[in-house]
Design a protein around this nucleic acid. Sequence first.
DNA 1: GACACTGTGTTTACGGTGTTTACATGCCAG
DNA 2: CTGGCATGTAAACACCGTAAACACAGTGTC
Lengths: 212, 212
Amino acid sequence: MPAQQEKILACACELYLEAGLPGFSMRKLAKNVGVTAPALYRHYDGKNKVLADVVRAAYQAYQGYVYRALRAATPIERFFQAGEGYLDFALEHPRWYKIMFSSPERLGMQELPKDIEAMGWGVHQFWIDRVRECMQVGILKEADPLRTSLTMWAHAHGMVQLYHQGLFPMDQEEFRSLFEESGARMMSGFATDSFRTQLEELNLLGQTAPQA
Amino acid sequence: MPAQQEKILACACELYLEAGLPGFSMRKLAKNVGVTAPALYRHYDGKNKVLADVVRAAYQAYQGYVYRALRAATPIERFFQAGEGYLDFALEHPRWYKIMFSSPERLGMQELPKDIEAMGWGVHQFWIDRVRECMQVGILKEADPLRTSLTMWAHAHGMVQLYHQGLFPMDQEEFRSLFEESGARMMSGFATDSFRTQLEELNLLGQTAPQA
DNA sequence: GACACTGTGTTTACGGTGTTTACATGCCAG
DNA sequence: CTGGCATGTAAACACCGTAAACACAGTGTC
């Protein structure tokens, strides 16, 4: 990747992270780079292509938060550390999280580039692997890891989306514990009996919480 | 609500539904209404206010799909019919679904109007009620209905979002059965033993599905 | 050295956007 | 009839993405 293109991309990421998608324009980007807008077109074939590279950078940032969990020793540690990394990423970089899971329409494209689509599937594949190894060591009940991890991912993604939209009137710390508790509640259906007992001992299932 | 404002809103909904958020402009809206753009400002204080009313209309459409479930006789029927209505709405009107759960930033606002926020909480409250009455008749285990329904809602919302983003390479029918199966899997953790047996008999839990 | 080519920038321009201002028109109450 | 009000218009401003034409510096070749 040529140096000037890299510089443009770096400025583009910075601009997107501080101004969001509606505040992202080629003219502002050009000013940040130190050139005029049409010059950007020497290096990028339009705004969409710049944004596509910002999405790729978002996936890279995501991977930095989640893949470090692979250094843990056991499947269950890898699973929980990855979950923590997922939540950290979603809370510390909401704009990066949002652009990763933006529909093509929102980015002004008809279809996502194939390699970005593949990155989305990669996120899923990672969780399939975590779930599979948890099944192998008897923490989760034997089942289809693909479908089980999909259920878990959808839950986590939905929680984050609803929080980002402002539907939970609470601060980050409260949401964090809500997220963990909700995840544990959901997982109690997939967990083996012995692991479910562990979850209950962590007081994460909230079986005796007050009525709303 | 004055007649002309109503006409503008109707055209705005139509325009949004067929062109999406990026294709929605005050000038196009004005042309559809049969007027020039500045005339819209006599009735609406800017694009944001129009969009806010489109969001309100989206919530109304949502309610039409989900509230009819309240006519069913038993809590369990109300729960499942509401779930079906939720999915129908999400699949038949993806743009309405998307704008309901768009972050304020995407709509060009800093904060959502209070009444729209309240509509979001209303969606949650509806599910709290469904879950509570299922607990009362012994279909779901006794627990905090607020938190239990939140877990369920987040799961449903996450599934829909990931599907809308194109992360599931499948058609609507396949997704529909995936959604139901995933919901049943998640609910198996909240269900009483007798109800879980029912779910298993419906072959919804996919315990013996193939590996990925 | 002269030349052409290539890479990279610029200026200018076109059509689109949200929105404001100033002006016109029609209608209705006093 | 007339003033005021509701409602439209045209013109303008400041942005936006992007295309076309032009400028210039570096490089390789004859």
